[in-house]
Design a protein around this nucleic acid. Structure first.
Lengths: 157, 157
DNA sequence: TGGGATACCATGGGATTTCATGGGAAACAA
DNA sequence: TTGTTTCCCATGAAATCCCATGGTATCCCA
């Protein structure tokens, strides 16, 4: 599982250290690294380990082989995700398109989200975090009984 | 597994580099190359490695020997697929009919689809990608619980 | 409980390898 | 022959590997 929030530097070569505890939670995967993709939900990246990709793959496999919605998901998910392998010190190098998409320049904030994690530009994250905090404060009762209609903080912003 | 999206050039001789990570995921197959066929879902090519062909073969084997759809699949899949072997630097040369079918001229976009991949003309891919992305965004919950049939990505977009 | 030693972690930079691509020569087909 | 396809080598750019360093948290023992 991915926990806590860490900000690390991005060097001139586009490399960034993945937080050590994130690395620990994907240790033992067949690839020595993580999978990263552009979020559907905003200007940040999302990532996870092998296990997460396998879960997504299984969800897709449950669909009809050539159903149009299945191929759409396959293109977006498999085509959009990239495996990034660790170097010997636990860094990955961020593809330019990914860095641009998330407006990452000199620093990256890794946010643990349980099964997956997010990678934000520190400033963008600070703003979003403030909103999330306010939302959580106003809706804390929802934690006990999740809302039926699936609303999400910050969606549609 | 095939991941990520890469665009490579097609040279005057009709050769195109297969992305290195695609090559890595078919390394060890008995043929040093990939299998490619015309999609029956649109103006693009599909491809995969040995393992995929064997799976398709097994799926067809499970059908009735003289089922009309079985023989149709056999003709389309085995008759339509061509093994393309890598040269020493990892390129394949695209048969003219394939390039024409997918409107490929100077560049080809390889899209990882998990077990298989697609090859698109970059412009055609950009259009389709935009539609797929929108679809995925609107229907991401379907990943958890597949839709009950009927709705299609991009229809009426 | 303090303080020093140790292990871990993020970071920097140089050297090396890989990768995509171009073009010539050789093998092959018509 | 003439045109086409396959093999091989060359090249520049980009990604990766490897070693070094400083800082920080942790451990251990007095």
């Amino acid at each position: 599982m991915f926990f806590s929030t860490t900000t690390n530097g991005i060097d001139a070569k586009g490399r960034v250290s993945v937080p050590a505890d994130f690395r620990a939670s994907v240790a033992g995967d067949t690839i020595n690294g993580i999978y990263v993709w552009r979020s559907f939900n905003g200007p940040f990246l999302e990532g996870g380990g092998q296990r997460l990709m396998e879960e997504l793959s299984a969800a897709i496999d449950a669909m009809d082989p050539y159903d149009d919605s299945r191929t759409a998901f396959e293109r977006v998910i498999f085509g959009g995700a990239r495996p990034l392998t660790f170097d010997s010190t636990g860094r990955v190098s961020l593809p330019k398109e990914f860095a641009e998409f998330a407006s990452l320049s000199s620093k990256a904030t890794f946010v643990g989200m349980g099964k997956r994690f997010e990678i934000w530009d520190p400033e963008a994250h600070a703003e979003r975090h403030a909103r999330d905090l306010e939302f959580a404060r106003e809706n804390k009762s929802a934690l006990r009984r999740p809302p039926a209609n699936g609303f999400r903080p910050g969606e549609g912003a």
